[in-house]
């Protein structure tokens, strides 16, 4: 028996929005530790790694580890039927072929349930090595989203350069070039508005705009985003999910031919 209840059901809706454009389908792995998902996009250029710890659910029971393969377009249809203020409960039997979603309104006067057929997915799992990154930058997530959107108008890829002074995003295209520099903030009133840079070595790497813009669909999950960069390895873009989870996107760099 698997049962997970999240009072703040809007978090699950936001998680869905954060992955549904990148992935067609994905397996949700459930264990007593919580819910995990790892999936690559079709082109194997980016990977989504989602972790929601069991401690973040107000009810969590998982008697046996199980994997639930879901079509994300179908899942999205179901979660769109939940209001932002609803509590969401997921339920499945051991070795399930369906999963049930129950949405309860705040006053419990409206309860709806939807069941969805699960699918068998033969998904490749990748071992992601522990990496000490040369630069780790934390910045407001809305700012990152705006920069990616603005610079995407001018070219297909964005070069991210990081030094101890700050982080620079650059684009070059047919009509010209664009650069956005963010300095490390000295002191800000709100932690959510800070830009912080932890740098061992300066780094400059280039990434496809298309994927960066997909990642920014996670912006409503967290006011801050963390970018981890090292020379010649994939970028990691991380958004926290409340106090109990995260969504990490890995993106392979573009290199000179």
């Amino acid at each position: 028996m698997f049962e997970a209840r999240l009072t703040q059901g809007s978090l699950l809706k936001k998680v869905m929005e954060a992955i549904r454009e990148l992935l067609n389908e994905a397996s949700f792995d459930c264990s007593e530790n919580g819910i995990q998902l790892q999936a690559m996009d079709n082109s194997h250029v980016s990977l989504v790694s989602l972790n929601m710890g069991s401690e973040g659910f107000d009810k969590f029971r998982c008697d046996r580890n199980l994997t639930m393969g879901m079509n994300l377009a179908s899942l999205s249809k179901i979660l769109k039927c939940a209001s932002n203020s609803d509590a969401i409960t997921l339920k499945a039997q051991d070795d399930p072929d369906t999963v049930t979603f129950t949405f309860e309104s705040e006053n419990n006067e409206r309860v709806s349930d939807y069941s969805m057929k699960l699918i068998n997915l033969d998904q490749e799992h990748l071992g992601i090595p522990d990496t000490e990154y040369s630069c780790v930058v934390k910045m407001p997530s809305a700012d990152f989203a705006r920069i990616c959107k603005d610079l995407s108008q001018f070219g297909d890829c964005i070069t991210i350069s990081c030094t101890k002074e700050g982080i620079k995003f650059s684009v070059a295209g047919d009509i010209g070039t664009g650069n956005v520099k963010l300095a490390q903030t000295a002191n800000v009133d709100k932690e959510s508005e800070a830009v912080t840079v932890e740098m061992q070595e300066p780094v400059s790497l280039t990434f496809a705009c298309r994927y960066l813009n997909h990642f920014t669909k996670a912006t409503p999950l967290s006011e801050q985003v963390q970018l981890s960069l090292s020379a010649d390895v994939p970028l990691v873009v991380e958004y926290k999910i409340g106090e109990f989870g995260h969504i990490r996107y890995y993106l392979a760099p573009k290199i000179d031919e």
């Binding site: 980016s46 392979a252 000179d256």
Partner: peptide
Amino acid sequence: PKKQLTLSAFFDQR
């Protein structure tokens, strides 16, 4: 022109 790498160049299959 730049070449897009894939993740298989970095991560091992489990």
